[in-house]
Amino acid sequence: MESDMKPEITWQDFEKLDIRSGTVLSAEDFPKAKNPAYQLTIDFGGLGIKKSSARITKLHRKEDLVGMQILAVVNFPVKQIANFFSECLVLGLYGKDETEITLITTTLPVENGRRLG
């Protein structure tokens, strides 16, 4: 288990993150990505539909992702990965290494676009 903590942040630092709930609409292979990844399309309710490149292929199957409610940071700048524009950062927890990522999901259904608080 990792014991190195990152530097302390202020409440104002945390408030800058906009973390929202969304439902995965589709998950496709992303063969042009440098590391194995999926291209996700996610519904964030009133925020609209956003796309994300997610390196979650080791523990998650594409067909299991559709309909899953996840959490993502939605206020990062768009990042181009190969020919794809990732519009949000899907959140997950590392396993034994940075290739084993478990998505953070909701325990009960919530409205898409709800803010983490």
Rank of each mutant, 00 (worst) to 15 (best):
M5R: 15
P7G: 01
T10Y: 04
Q12P: 01
D13W: 04
K16A: 11
I19M: 03
V24C: 11
A27P: 08
A27K: 03
D29A: 15
D29E: 14
P31I: 05
A33I: 01
A33V: 01
A37G: 03
Q39C: 06
L40Y: 01
L40I: 02
L40M: 03
I42D: 08
F44E: 02
F44P: 00
G45L: 00
G46S: 06
L47Y: 08
L47H: 07
G48E: 01
I49F: 04
K50M: 15
K50C: 06
S53H: 05
S53D: 08
R55G: 09
I56Q: 08
L59Q: 08
K62F: 06
K62T: 05
V66H: 01
M68G: 02
Q69F: 02
V74Y: 00
N75V: 02
K79S: 09
Q80D: 06
I81L: 14
A82T: 07
F84L: 14
F84Q: 11
F85G: 08
S86R: 13
V90P: 04
L91I: 15
D97I: 11
D97E: 02
E98I: 10
E98D: 15
T99K: 13
T102R: 09
T102D: 02
I104D: 02
I104H: 04
I104C: 08
T105K: 11
L108E: 13
P109L: 07
P109K: 12
V110R: 08
E111S: 08
E111W: 00
G113A: 04
G113Y: 09
R114T: 15
R115D: 00
L116A: 07
G117Y: 11
G117M: 10
G117N: 14
G117A: 12
